[in-house]
């Protein structure tokens, strides 16, 4: 998946007062769409999911030497893992049932079911959900819900692309740093590409991903995180420096 463009998107849509106009090619294993609130980041993901009413949209996936158009397909046929910004957990299911939602739709026979459960177990481990597996969404904190949201997206059978909207919002930083290497390992194993959305500079830099910078519904830059977010990086270092200076010395 890392070699060459794996997905491409062209979209024009009116989202409230915002005119979203973007044309993008995704080549990196992990792409971060970065921008301020209201810049159209989530709408971009929704356009890929087929959840946004667009004036024009063209969304395609590389398949062999050709391209498979996805924009004409219903959402459930696009082979996507999706974690929306609001966790949107199914309230009548336990944590485990939520995570297993996608895998338990069509397993035929005992072997297929067993295999599906193994994938669910692996996701429960990666996102540290074992202790919560019998709880209902009502009993979870924001960070816990978000981890279930992520785990559920990771177990979609046959998924080719993960779309994660503010995936680590509310997740404890220590836990995030612990989960991230295992997530990346899993993605590599399954040859899965990720497009995530964030407004957190630190997160964008941490992921070492390609960054698409979105402002006012338009793409203003695309490239390596350290280049696209150079200004923010300098500002962040200055802030950290200032904070360090303000710490009383010995």
């Amino acid at each position: 998946m890392a070699n060459g463009v794996h997905h491409r998107l062209r979209v024009e849509a009116e989202v409230g007062a915002l005119l979203l106009e973007a044309e993008l090619e995704f080549a990196a294993p992990w792409t971060v769409v970065f921008g301020p609130s209201g810049s159209g980041k989530s709408s971009l993901l929704k356009a890929m999911c087929g959840l946004l009413e667009c004036d024009e949209v063209e969304f395609a996936r590389r398949e062999g030497e050709g391209w498979r158009m996805l924009d004409g397909l219903e959402s459930y046929r696009r082979l996507l893992g999706y974690a929306p910004q609001q966790a949107a957990l199914f309230p009548h299911m336990t944590v485990r049932q939520n995570v297993a939602f996608a895998t338990t739709q069509r397993p035929k026979g005992r072997a297929a079911w067993k295999q599906a459960m193994e994938v669910v177990d692996a996701a429960m481990d990666v996102f540290a959900l074992r202790e919560l597996e019998d709880r209902r969404p009502d009993d979870l904190s924001g960070g816990e819900s978000q981890r279930v949201n992520l785990a559920r997206a990771f177990v979609v059978p046959g998924a080719r692309l993960m779309l994660l909207d503010e995936p680590f919002s509310g997740v404890d930083r220590r836990l995030r740093d612990m989960m991230l290497p295992r997530m990346k390992e899993w993605l590599k194993e399954l040859d899965l590409a990720v497009i995530s959305v964030t407004h957190d500079v630190d997160e964008a830099l941490l992921l070492e991903a390609e960054v698409v910078r979105l402002e006012g519904g338009r793409v203003v830059a695309q490239g390596a995180a350290v280049e696209v977010l150079a200004e923010e990086r300098v500002r962040m270092i200055a802030v950290l420096g200032g904070a360090a200076e303000s710490i009383p010395q010995g």
């Binding site: 959840l51 959402s75 459930y76 929306p84 997206a153 979609v156 059978p157």
Partner: peptide
């Protein structure tokens, strides 16, 4: 949002 999420996760 629950219905939409379920749909993107592969549910017809």
């Amino acid at each position: 949002e629950l219905r939409e999420t379920a749909s993107v996760l592969g549910a017809g």
